[in-house]
Write a protein that binds this DNA or RNA. Structure first.
Lengths: 336, 336
DNA sequence: TTGTAAGCGTTATCAA
DNA sequence: TTGATAACGCTTACAA
């Protein structure tokens, strides 16, 4: 026989209504009674039936999702992950309230966060580390469960983080570079923005590996600001001046990167490694314009985060705290 | 207002009971009435409420899962995928009936299949292609939905297949080999069993690529029968006789493969590529004993297959027909 | 062949 | 501070 709230009520010598009030901390129960009921619930390891409660419940639950730059295809991949995760729970009346912030400055982030937080039962956000934002996030953490994705906010009170180990990703690129380039080869290195921690960690990991384990000559890091035209321009400039056996891009716009090299009609084709398994980059692999693309599993970063929040909202499954890292993916022409 | 079976009944001028009988093809309804109700259901795009029906329904649903060799860690990975998928549906009273077949002969497969099929609402099986088994599978296909995983049975009436493109996986290994070996290098190639189609396809893909695009010298394929000791022995023999710059294993027991090479204390360390991201092989990557491991996403092969079957059983979500291929994974020391 | 009514386990309102 | 009761949408005996 299934354990029901009715049985709990009988054991406690009260009615179902009272048990329910205790279950949802809805107050209006004498403390002693509440304590007694709680004890019985714990002892019998009672878990409310999901169907019963969802059949009876009225209002929907809302999960707020905050992503960055809507132009960046990477965040569109995350969006898809979030949508797919919640669509698995469509029976449960869970809806997503999704916001992208444009511009990427502190102010727009705070505005978006504030709009997102109203009438929301849980939050999944891509982190942004400024004192003011951390402060604001901490306020929210007191009210509802909040997880970070992709970019952590380690100094905040967020419950958990899901992302990748960017330093390790950089090391991985280092190893691949070593394996596919001749000893002593020259490598052109470009990144997006120094302030973006995830990208900078990749650079560090890459330099760490190549210095320790290779005799490759790595160029000074060139920063593109993650602007497609600057990626193109600076890459072209670099390859006009020097011969590089390999080219590594830690930031966005790998297509501009490869195009710059392509357009120069060099007599040789440098090995090219970039980041993010987005459609544009899939095509580069397909067409043989890039050799390796490192994927950061944006889809699963969002999917898994939303998934856990759903489980929490429905079954009160505890959210796992701390940092969780997905392995990156290594992609070439044959596994896109 | 939510569309309920009650409303459908009213529109059709019948009772809920009748609608329900139509909904579940439980018979005992006048054909004309049934037709009328069906039409109204279709017109209004009515979908039964999952909570209502699950609250009311009594019996559990059973999904049968047939895996091969329980000794092979790869199938343990698949088992985990299947378990995880169904555990997402624990509210729904769906249980897994899982069978591994030992020995791997036709007879044990048929016995297992037969035991599995009793009182089962859907089947997910790793294929095995013999006329007799195909015949038996086709019988089952008439009764319940059946999908293949990992190894297809293209000549059967199975609904869909989820696996990887083994030929492409072989090509991928070819490309990697080319990239990390010197031009003109020698490669030792081993596989498991010629009769296992998935492995043989890998071999074909590998030879196809290396012949077309490289000047590598590939050894004659040595077959181990997927026995650890033979893997060890034959590999040792090969490396005693020749110097190989690289070693590729398409079958199981990469650990025996690397150990054989290790134990010879060669003055050089050949590049090693193998298959299946199982724990043993993770460790080889970690310890630097292998350079690349190709993962066939066994976890997701099982997870996704079971997941679709659950969706089908609960929401009648149509199962997608035909062949579905997951991209393989490329793994090295930095993404295990 | 069809309709009726009693559950399934929870929530929420209202009365006590 | 509590308890009774009516939903919620569906399934399934059983009655008609």
């Amino acid at each position: 026989m299934k354990l029901t709230s009715q049985k709990i009520a009988e054991k406690a010598g009260v009615s179902r209504g009272t048990v329910d009030r205790v279950l949802h901390n809805r107050g209006r129960v004498k403390p002693e009674t509440a304590e007694k009921i709680r004890k019985i619930i714990a002892e019998n390891n009672y878990q409310p039936d999901a169907f019963g409660s969802n059949l009876a419940r009225r209002q929907e639950r809302v999960i707020g999702v905050l992503l960055l730059d809507p132009e960046n295809p990477f965040f569109q991949v995350m969006k898809k992950g979030a949508d797919d995760a919640v669509s698995q729970y469509k029976d449960y009346k869970i809806v997503l309230k999704m916001k992208n912030i444009e511009g990427g400055n502190e102010e727009s982030y705070l505005t978006a966060l504030n709009e997102l937080q109203e009438n929301t039962d849980a939050l999944a956000i891509v982190g942004y580390n400024t004192p003011k934002i951390i402060q604001e996030v901490n306020k929210l953490c007191n009210k509802i469960p909040l997880n970070t994705m992709n970019t952590d906010m380690p100094d905040s009170d967020r419950i958990g983080f899901l992302g990748i180990d960017d330093f390790r990703a950089g090391q991985c690129v280092g190893l691949l570079t070593k394996e596919i380039l001749p000893s002593g080869g020259n490598v052109f290195l470009m990144s997006g923005r120094k302030e973006i921690k995830t990208q900078e960690k990749r650079v560090e990991g890459f330099l760490d590996y190549t210095k320790q384990y290779t005799d490759l000559n790595i160029s000074k890091v060139v920063y593109s600001g993650d602007h497609a035209d600057i990626v193109y321009e600076e890459t072209a400039n670099a390859f006009i001046r020097h011969k590089y056996d390999g080219a590594v891009l830690m930031g966005a716009y790998l297509n501009a990167f490869t195009k710059a090299i392509d357009d120069l009609n060099l007599s040789y084709r440098p090995k090219i490694i970039g980041f993010d398994l987005i459609d544009a980059n899939r095509k580069l692999l397909e067409d043989g314009k890039a050799d390796f693309v490192i994927g950061q599993q944006g889809y699963f970063q969002a999917f898994n985060t939303i998934h856990s929040l759903c489980e929490y909202l429905i079954h009160k499954t505890p959210l796992s705290e701390g940092i969780h890292l997905l392995p990156i993916t290594i992609n070439n022409h044959y596994n896109i």
